[in-house]
Amino acid sequence: MQPEVRANRSSGFIRALRAVDRALNMTLLRIAQVLIMTLVVLVVFCVFVRYFNIRINVNWAEEIPALLVDAFAFLACAMGVRDHLHVSMGILYNKLCVGGKARRALEFFTDVCVLVVAALFIVYGGQLALTQYQRGTLMMATGWPRWVQYIGLPVAGVVMAFDSILFLTGVLPQNDTIFSDIREDPLEQARLLREQEAGLCGQGEQALQAQPGEPQDPSREVKP
């Protein structure tokens, strides 16, 4: 495959870019993982407080969880960009030949769109966070600063912009992923299968059946 060849010849600078990108995205993943576990713990704690009549005034029961969801929503959005997870409609794309110019044009266009959205996140999300920061407004229940609820937007925007620029410049190949192991993801496998179907340009089922699969589940080897 082409991207791999390119990968071998890549310069130190390109490898450094990839390493930075990986580190950035892994940081997002770690933060998001911690946030989601915190969420479970907080809500379970609230149930305990109520159920066992523990005399603690939980006044953050809505504000903090809402804040956490909002933080990891945008972090997850950026992670989704890195691995091309966001659902799209392949009606036209799948009809085009694998590796063809038309497909590459669509891929390029998608990355440009992501870059545009990332720019919007940075500019307007940054503006929202900044004005709240300057005003020093606080939230009702917790008294935390209000800018916290907007900060996920520009942070995600920066990572998304970085990712999409790397995809656009070819530093990262289109099918490169960090969070997904293609062999393990059923949706990803379904996508590959459809690509093969399209790529075979209607050679029929025999060719499809004969595709050398990578069955990780032994039961899958069973053929009728």
Binding site: C77, H86, V87, S88, M89, G90, I91, L92, Y93, L106, F109, T110, C113, V114, V116, V117, L120, F121, Y124, G125, Q127, L128, L153
Partner: peptide, 30 residues
């Protein structure tokens, strides 16, 4: 959507373009 832009980003870009035409503030949407 037809050009395979992810649904969520298609929504955002279409909304922003429409807001620019209608003269809405973009911070309202963000």
């Amino acid at each position: 959507l037809m050009l395979r832009v992810p649904v969520s980003f298609s929504l955002i870009i279409a909304t922003v373009c429409s807001a620019l035409v209608a003269g809405e503030k973009l911070t309202l949407l963000m």
